[in-house]
Design a protein around this nucleic acid. Structure first.
Lengths: 344, 344
DNA sequence: GGCGATCATGTTGACGTCAACATCGACGTG
DNA sequence: CACGTCGATGTTGACGTCAACATGATCGCC
């Protein structure tokens, strides 16, 4: 409209001072109105509100943060190739944080090397956050020198017990037990297991729990198959497994690998669940529509997100350290990929 | 623990003044070192660096932002139930932004009602961001009063041409043409289409391009089937389609629906690609392991993310408005779900 | 009617950083 | 040796907000 064409566009908006001038009050009164303090005359308040609208006032959060020493913002450290679970958890974290009046700062780790993780933490130091949720698998932390700024509240979403930070995660052990017992209860002599990468604590927990459940029931423990969470690794394992008629039941550590495994079994002409029962872990949005629809263990990512934000905010606001790990229970969803073994 | 229990926990760290005191220099010199200015004596620089380490100095980004009138941070408005594509794009955005030295602020829209979208924008006003990328489907914007703070750089990731903001998106039309022509080239008389929800501009573009391709080739245009992106809606449509022997080729607007459709065809005993060829859109990580592996159109979410960040940063730094929409090309990935029609 | 309580509003300064300007010493040149 | 230059370093103030304190007006009560 006007001829004001500043070449360098510093987005200096209007400040309280501008509003104050228009409304004919002091800056402090504007501040009181902006923060909803009670001790302002109704007429004055209206005048200020009108002035705010007129000049298009929006509070400057940098100034506010500087003044208060708080950012009302939390950082979330995620690994670049955010896995299915992490994505869902991130979603829940964002929702919970927003509901609690906190902003969410994404801090991606650009690659898996030590340096990159360290860099993420360094960057963290310069970020405007009051606390951090770590969403990468803990073994990646191990390798990096974990140099978190002292006094920065942290919550780790993982199943590792190695750190001195509050921990929130799905109850991996309970979920794996659910899966294994389901297959055993159907009458299978034992259950094979396709696990995730050994570097993942979650994978380790699921594996251990599967082992333990078999042992408790007096079942033989077959050799462990190792995958890397990807459908491809499930597919490759599936090709091997299809050749062994002894195998009648498999517990796969995530649904993605289960998908690849199903494909391999189809290719080899093995019927599911007729020849082989399969249970997954996660319950992705697609799992109900695999062929056949997959029996799986449903994780409550929403709950994990919510709990971790709660824990972090409590830490931020009260300095409270909640050292008991939070384990969010899972739920078995039975579909068509599991059935009793064929009579011999 | 100690007796000093400040009720309000202000996380005041050490400031430049502290470093300056320890190093025996002025705050300004510390500032120069922190910002890598050249005109500092080497010995002095080392002394300051040592002092920084000693007191654990980290720059206060709030103060910096206040001083500079810039936050070096961009906001990304996302819809709560971030779809597969949005998640991938977000990932790419985060990576690109970080690489360019910008932080990423997540601004989730908590539900689809008008009020919620407006709230997100209002909140935006208080956020510390230099610009915004809008990742929700544009029709949701339509419904809300779009009240973006004036002068705030914005980039929209969508296929709508309704807005006065720069737009970046996958070239939906080109992708849909690729899919349709592939099926036609195999010898199918025509191609059916299971589209996404009409409210989605992306879905509309794919649909229009499919229609146009058929018309250009002089093929009959079958009635449009409408889904909602979910595997379930694909499944339901699949049940209908399986009953119609006329149908030999289907282009499904996303891989999730294609998965559901495949399941329905399996259930009805129709063979793929023997009886029916299916092409999807997206190329998710799982699509290669569907049964059968899915022929699909690969979107480059990474490219979309990168380009939108680039556009936004250019806008922020140069005030440049790039009004030509950016269309990122797709690529057809041929797998086993497509084949020539059976000879009659 | 005098005095303290209550309430609206104003004034001041500090949060941490950094651009702009000021200072000071060293060095080169005619 | 007087003067100008350049490079290192210091000093000041402003960015926008808000707590703490200050002011001044109104009201109730003995």
């Amino acid at each position: 409209m006007t001829a004001e064409d500043t070449p360098v566009r510093r987005r200096r908006g209007s400040s309280m001072a501008d509003v104050a001038r228009v409304a004919g009050v002091s800056g402090q009164t504007v501040s009181r109105v902006a923060n909803g303090r009670a001790n302002v005359d109704a007429a004055t308040r209206d005048r200020v509100l009108a002035a705010m609208r007129e000049v298009g006032y929006r509070p400057n959060s940098a100034a506010r943060a500087l003044r208060n020493g708080q950012f009302r913002s939390i950082g979330v450290i995620v690994f670049e190739l955010s896995s299915f679970g992490n994505t869902r958890t991130l979603d829940a974290i964002a929702t919970a944080a927003t509901t609690s009046g906190y902003a969410v700062n994404l801090l991606p780790v650009l690659d898996a090397t030590q340096g990159a993780v360290s860099t993420a933490f360094t960057r963290l130091g310069e970020q405007a956050v009051d606390g951090v949720i770590i969403l990468i698998e803990a073994h990646q932390l191990d390798e990096a020198e974990v140099m978190l700024p002292e006094g920065l509240p942290v919550v780790v979403v993982d199943s590792s017990a190695h750190y001195d930070y509050p921990i929130v995660d799905t109850d991996q052990a309970q979920g794996a037990r659910l899966a294994t017992e389901h297959l055993l209860d159907l009458g299978h002599a034992t259950v094979w297991h396709l696990g995730g990468p050994p570097s993942s604590f979650a994978a380790a927990r699921r594996l251990r729990s599967w082992q333990q459940t078999l042992t408790e029931r007096g079942c033989p423990v077959p050799p462990v198959l190792v995958g890397d969470w990807s459908p491809r690794s499930g597919y490759e394992t599936g090709l091997e497994l299809a050749a062994d008629p002894e195998v009648t039941a498999v517990f796969v550590a995530n649904d993605h690998m289960a998908l690849g495994l199903l494909r391999a079994l189809h290719e080899k002409g093995r019927s599911i669940p007729g020849d082989l029962s399969v249970v997954g872990f996660d319950d992705t949005a697609e799992s109900a529509h695999f062929w056949p629809p997959l029996t799986t263990v449903r994780q409550s990512f929403a709950e994990v997100g919510r709990r971790s934000v709660d824990a972090l905010i409590r830490e931020i606001q009260a300095g409270e350290h909640h050292h008991d790990p939070v384990a969010v229970p899972t739920e078995l969803v039975v579909r068509n990929s599991t059935a009793p073994p064929r009579k011999k």
